[in-house]
Design a protein around this nucleic acid. Structure first.
Lengths: 213, 213
DNA sequence: AGCGGTATTACCCAAATGTGTAATTGCCTG
DNA sequence: CAGGCAATTACACATTTGGGTAATACCGCT
């Protein structure tokens, strides 16, 4: 049983190449293909596909917005991005919009079909280069900042502050007087180059000075 | 020219299977294989590999700590995780530790070798299931929370608060009196189920109610 | 033994924050 | 058109926050 497939790509030649590649023998049937995805919703309602191959750079709303729209109404339809673009911004936005895969147009036909199958079986699929960018982003996101050289006590006080405790409650938690807490906070504000509790909390979270649940 | 390869895995049978698979014909040479990575640094110094296949669940320090250690000293050596584990925690920690790929032990031999080659050519490599988990994480990270039903004005006020502005400053930004700001904040606190500014800021950032730079 | 950094406490005082109550206006929807 | 919700302002009051200044104590290092 072959999977039904839509193609959105404004490059006619490439669309026809894909149609030639994705024959019944490959396990896919290209139901229809379009040069833009401005009317994707109606087209999907009319002829419900299992999988959509989506170009990014198209006239009209463009592929990324298309993904957002389609996934909102049909989250179960798989969508794989298929473009020449390798820039982080487009990758990130596509994946966040809900794309289930991201294959570069340079992918060889055999691997392309194989990737689509993996995708239909519940996995996700990315070209190695894309995967590498995604992992890079991952690593960056975990780097903890130690550049503010807070003392152990200051870190403790700041942690309670971020959790929403008042000076008085922090004093209780740390078994010190409220004046001590005030002093610590004052020092913390100086070290973080901020001037109030809310700003300190924002900076502490964004710079991962304190670790969250 | 074949790539030099290390294997760290405490399962002897599997290690030998891999050694049999990764012959010169495959483009790899298994230099040595070990049952744990506690002495990885010395072993690497002694016989510098291009690529390391790393199990996670090993006696001693375990694969994830091993990756951290190795990548700190030899960031250019590729490391691919190779385990039966599919839980988000292990995936996330491995990738953040600096792993260049994550292949499940269920991967078929042909794809396994192919993936290693993709990795050596600068790409990253993940089993489809892993890729799917990573993308899932990605999406979650961008999903803006609308579940608190803040009004447009409340969102505006909250944004300024997160940026560290005082009530008075917010009043100026929004061209309203300070009492109005106080009222808005009061309503915001109720909607977010918090009781003070710091808690609101923490919740706003963590739940991505407001978008950061 | 003495120096420097951290931790601690205290006090004063100005400013900001948070709560309660109440009233007015405008806009949208049923 | 009426009712509900959002936005706005006002005032009073208690509490919290944040800054400045100063002193004591502990701990590690030279």
């Amino acid at each position: 049983m072959a999977y039904n497939l839509f193609i959105y790509d404004d490059n006619d030649r490439l669309r026809h190449t894909l149609e030639a590649l994705l024959t019944e023998a490959s396990g896919f049937v290209v139901k229809t293909s379009f040069g833009n995805c401005d009317h994707a919703i109606e087209q999907i309602r009319e002829n419900y596909p299992d999988l959509i191959i989506m170009d990014i750079n198209m006239p009209g709303m463009g592929g990324i917005n298309g993904v957002t729209l389609i996934k909102e109404l049909f989250p179960e339809i798989k969508i794989v991005m298929h473009t020449v673009f390798e820039d982080d911004e487009k990758i990130f936005n596509s994946l966040c919009a809900g794309a289930d895969g991201y294959l570069l147009k340079s992918t060889n036909p055999l691997k392309f079909v194989q990737s689509l199958h993996e995708l239909m079986e519940g996995g996700a699929s990315m070209s190695p280069f894309i995967a590498q960018r995604v992992l890079h982003f991952f690593r960056e996101s975990k780097k903890v900042n130690h550049q503010f050289s807070l003392t152990k006590r200051e870190l403790e006080v700041l942690t309670w502050l971020v959790k929403g405790h008042s000076y008085k409650m922090i004093a209780g938690e740390c078994s010190v007087t409220i004046d001590t807490v005030k002093k610590h906070l004052q020092n913390i504000y100086h070290k973080l180059h901020v001037s109030c509790a809310t700003e300190a909390v924002a900076k502490a979270i964004m710079h991962k000075i304190i670790l969250l649940d």
